[in-house]
Structures are given as structure tokens and as C-alpha cells.
Write a protein that binds this DNA or RNA. Sequence first.
DNA 1: TACCAGGAGAAAA
DNA 2: TTTTCTCATGGT
Length: 224
Amino acid sequence: MAGRAPLFNPSAEALTALYAALLARYGRQPWWPAETPFEVVVGAVLTQNAAWTNVEKAIARLRSRDLLSLDAVLAAEHDALADAIRPSGYFNVKARRLRSVCAFLDDAGGMQRFARRDLATQRSGLLAVHGIGPETADDILLYALDRPVFVIDVYTRRLLQRYRLARGDEPYEVLRAGFEAALAADVDLYQQFHALIVVHAKAACRKTPLCPTCVLAPACPGGR
DNA sequence: TACCAGGAGAAAA
DNA sequence: TTTTCTCATGGT
């Protein structure tokens, strides 16, 4: 019996053209918005189902309370941690998740030692942490550890759906594998591509009924 | 007032 | 195995 066709098998040309169009439209993005790799880890957890503006407030509160370090998070009381991250929502859940990932990194010898492990070990380790799903793990790998992992988020799904490159409801790993199979394992490319997808999703042009000036025209989702 | 925003895990069907 | 529910705040 023939195997089922891949759910998501984009051509390199299609993805490269999409990336080029986004880059031409929006330019290079200063992404991920964080000062340190550890801050990326914190942001990746806090941004779960939350607006980034609220995450920024939570991170600022952590910084002002000297809680923006692995040791400080592990030493903090749950209530103190939860109160600091309150603006990002789900603060009780996220406080536990933050402590879980910090405990994992601490067991691994800290961020720097963890960064030296091979990618497969890093990814499986992160995914085994309570509260760290594939998107959060890949955010950490790509933006904190500079590993070539393509991040799939809701914006990526919508974009693929609108360009009819995918249905949009494929499993996370199917979409990630599709991007990584079609594109070279280039950290900068992956970082910029994901950032541009997010920027495009938030841009006003997405919401307009027609977008003749957008470089993505005539395929711009806004024109559909 | 209602809805949405860069998820993930647990429980229920 | 798949679907639904829960967690929670702040902006529009």
C-alpha cells in the first residue's frame, strides 16, 4: 500500500519567494526582543496565549524585583513569582512553568552548559519539561540558543492557509519538518522568517480588503 | 460587554 | 484518539 502523501511538503522556491517578499516589505527584524538568552526563555513561557505588551510588563516587573535570573526564579516563593508576572495572565500556571524550566536548566548545568548539548537532546529535554510544548521549546532553541529549528505558531498556520500551502491544521511537527526540509538549516533565516511572519500578521495590511501596494500582491491574503 | 492575544496540560467524550 | 475545558490579564 502506498504511503499517504505528506500533509505539508512545500517547495524551497515557494518558501524562499515568500520569505523574500516579506523581507522586502518589512525589512530585517530585531528579534527576539530580549536582552539575554535567559530573558528569551522567560519571554517564551510568559507569551503563551498572551499579548507581548503584557509580557513586557511582566518582564519589567521581574527585572525591577531582581527576579530575572535562573537562580532568582528558583529561590523565589511561588506567590512572589506569580505576583511579578501577573500582567502576562495565567500567572499561577506560568509561575510553575517558569520554575519547571529553570529547574531543568539548572539540572543541566545552566544555560551555557545546556547550550553545548546536541540539538536532539536539547529539544527532547525541553519538551519533557512540564509546561513546555513544541512552540515554546522551539522559541527557546531558535532565539536563546541559536539552533536551526523552525518555530510554528498560529500566525504561521494562518499564513500557510491563506497562501494555500497547507490546510493549517496539520500537526506541529509536520509543519516544522516541512519548513526544515525545504529550507537550509540557517539560524538567521529561521529567526527572520518567523519574525517576519509575526510582523506581517500584525501589520495593518493584513486587514485591508485589497492591498495593491503590498509586495505580496496579488497573493497577499488581504486581497482574498 | 465581549473578544482577542505568539499555549499547554488535564479531563472528558 | 480527539475534543473540550481551564488557566487570567489588559487592550480594543
